[in-house]
Simulated scan of single mutants.
Amino acid sequence: MISENTKSIQNSKIRDMFHLALQYENPVNLTIGEPDFSASDDVAKAACKAIIEGKTKYSENAGILLLREKISRYLEKELNLNYDSEKEITVTPGAMGGLFQTLKTILNPGDEVIVNEPCWTNYIQQITMCGGAPISVGTKAENGFSIDVRAISEAINKKTKAIILNSPCNPTGNIISRRDLKELAAIVREKNILVISDEVYKHICFDESKFNSMATIPGMKERTVVIDSFSKSYAMTGFRIGYVAGPEEVISNITKLQENISACVSMPSQYAAVAALDNDGRHLNRMVQTYKLRRDYIMKKTEEIPFISCSLPKGTFYAFIDIHNTGMSSEEFAIELLKDKQIVVVPGTAFGEKGEGYIRLSFATSMKNIELGMEGMKAFVIENFA
C-alpha cells in the first residue's frame, strides 16, 4: 500500500531524540531549532485584526499582493535587487513548503542536487521525495565548515540540476564568504545549473559577520531561487509562512503546484507577515543580542570541558560540538547523555554521515536550560572520560 518512495523517507533524528526525552520527567531539551521568543505584539495584533475583520478566506495562490509588494521592497532594501511582486515572488507555507515546491518544480527523476554536509536533513529527504538524488559534499571543521568549492565542482556532472546553499548554516553556524560565492558562481554559470539559497537565518549573525546572498553576485539573480521564512527572524514558527523569490519561469510553476497542494497560505498569517516587515527591527535585534550572549556562554563553558571543542558559530542559534576525542559515536553520546543526565542534544549524524563525531545544541532556549545543560554535560564527560 505504501509507495517505495515514501518508505525511503526516514524520521528525523532530531525528532527521535525529542520523543526519547518524553520518557523522562524533566529533561533539559536543547534540540529544537525554534525561537523561545513569541512574535512581536504588532505581528500578533495584525493576525487577530485580520481574523476579526473576516480576512480568513482563500487568497491568490501566490499570496496577497500587498505582502508580495512588501517582500519586494524588503529584498530591494536587503539585497539591492529588484523582484517583480507579481511575477517573481510567491508566498509559501514556510520555507519548507517553498523548498519542496521548488524541488518539485525543477527535478526530473534521477536529477542530482548537491548539498553541503553537515546539513539540515530535510534537504536530503525532500530531494528524495521529489524523485531526485542528493549528492553530499563534505565541509571540514578545520576550515570553519566553509563550503569546498573545488569539491562541489568535482561533484557536478550532466545529471546535476541544482546546488542548495544554506548560510548561515544549520547546524554548523558557518556563513559563506562572498569570495567563495563568486568562485562558485563562475562554475554555476559555466555548468548552467540552479542555486537554491536557503536564507532563513540571514538576520541571525554575530560579531562582525555579514550574510551574503548568491543572488547578489553579478549574473546570478536569474540563476538563484531565494527561499526565506518568517519563522526564525520574527519568531513566527507556528504561522507557517515563508516565500520564494526567483526567475519568473520557476516562480509561476511553484505557484501552479501550490494551487494543487495547499491553495495558499493562511490569510491571517499573511497579514501578520505584512506587520513583521513593517516592524522597526527592535524585536529582532533583541533576539539576536540574546542569542549572542547564550552562544558566548556555551563557548566559554565548552572550553572548560575536556575532550570536546566547538568552532565558533558565526550565525544561527546552534553550536556544533566536536566529541571525537570521547571515542563515542554521535548517537551513543547523545543517548548516554540523556540517560545519565537527562540532557537532550542532537547527534551530528542527524545532519548526514559527515556529521559523525559531533552533537548539535540549540541555544534558542532559556539561559537556565543552557546552564543546566552545559553543567550536566561537563559532569557527564568528566565522569565517563576523564
Rank of each mutant, 00 (worst) to 15 (best):
T6Q: 10
N325K: 14
S8K: 06
A235N: 09
V345L: 11
E332M: 05
N5M: 12
L257H: 11
K210W: 01
I335W: 03
R179W: 10
C169D: 15
P171I: 01
I323M: 11
I305D: 01
N174E: 14
T160L: 06
D207F: 10
R68E: 03
T139E: 11
E4M: 04
T302E: 07
D322M: 07
Q258Y: 06
P134W: 07
V113M: 04
E199T: 12
G242E: 08
Y291G: 04
P247R: 07
A50W: 04
L75I: 01
G355W: 06
K159M: 07
I114W: 10
T6H: 09
E117Q: 12
A235W: 01
F239G: 05
C119H: 14
G327M: 01
L337S: 01
M367S: 12
L361M: 15
Q342T: 09
Q258S: 10
E248D: 08
F307I: 05
P118L: 12
S146N: 14
A350E: 13
H283G: 03
T349I: 15
L194S: 07
K232D: 10
A379I: 13
L20F: 10
G242D: 06
A155H: 04
K49C: 02
L372C: 08
P35S: 11
I9R: 00
K368T: 15
H19V: 13
Y74A: 06
I32D: 14
P168Q: 01
F333P: 00
D198H: 13
F18D: 14
Y201F: 13
I52D: 14
N5K: 13
K300F: 09
N369R: 05
T365H: 05
S229F: 07
P247W: 03
A44H: 09
T224K: 04
P35I: 04
K378G: 02
K182S: 12
A155W: 05
T31V: 15
G246A: 09
